[in-house]
């Protein structure tokens, strides 16, 4: 039973991975990656790591891929030629590189001195890979990496907002004179998105032309 499940999910994962690089439209690449991630989560379940599988589906296939879909539909993923226009030689070289990498990794895996690689794995202990065990490890042995990871996420969020924010402010008169119900209930210059990018200031005095 485990073998059948393994082959179904492994074929799904590899097909998804091939789909990511073989499809012209980036939107379909994202969808192929979602299939790949879900198959991979099932492989994780076969390896008895329940928590990572759940996190993979919820965080990766759920949240990160939604971000991708938003950006692809914003930037407008148009059909494009798959291969680079740098010539046939480069493509052949990259095929050779990928094949050589795979052969080398396979030799390293199959010819390893580790006896356990060709075993079924360690005997299963109840609770292995459960959220309780992962949580205990994260809050005891791996507390420092856990905190560093949370800081990294904070920095990445701030960096993404800084990189992708709208720099020019609100330009058209309709945008500047847009009113909402909230304008009555709160005082001026207290934190709307429009004021954040300089909309309210422009109403009073025309700001100098910003360097783009």
């Amino acid at each position: 039973m485990a073998e059948v499940l393994f082959f179904i999910t492994a074929i799904g994962a590899i097909t998804g991975a091939v789909g990511v690089i073989a499809v012209r439209n980036p939107f379909y690449s994202v969808l192929a990656l979602v299939c790949h991630l879900i198959s991979l989560a099932m492989l994780f379940l076969l390896l008895r790591s329940e928590f990572v599988a759940a996190a993979q589906v919820i965080v990766y296939a759920g949240a990160v891929m939604v971000l991708y879909v938003f950006v692809v539909s914003y930037v407008g993923g148009s059909d494009e030629p798959i291969s680079a226009n740098t010539g046939r030689g480069f493509k052949l070289a990259s095929v050779a590189f990928a094949l050589a990498l795979f052969v080398e990794l396979s030799i390293a895996i199959l010819g390893t001195g580790l006896q356990a690689v060709s075993s079924q794995g360690a005997p299963y202990v109840a609770g292995f890979g459960s959220p309780a065990e992962i949580g205990k490890l994260l809050l005891t042995d791996y507390l420092l990496p856990f905190e560093v990871a949370s800081f990294l996420l904070l920095i990445a969020a701030v960096g993404a907002v800084t990189l992708a924010r709208r720099r020019g402010g609100l330009e058209t008169p309709e945008e500047l004179s847009r009113l909402s119900v909230l304008d009555i209930t709160r005082p001026k210059i207290t934190g709307t998105m429009a004021e954040g990018v300089g909309g309210a200031r422009r109403l009073e005095a025309p700001a100098p032309e910003e360097v783009v």
Partner: peptide, 8 residues
């Protein structure tokens, strides 16, 4: 295999 597909 998946790693090599990604690298390609």
């Amino acid at each position: 295999l998946i790693f090599c597909i990604g690298a390609f």
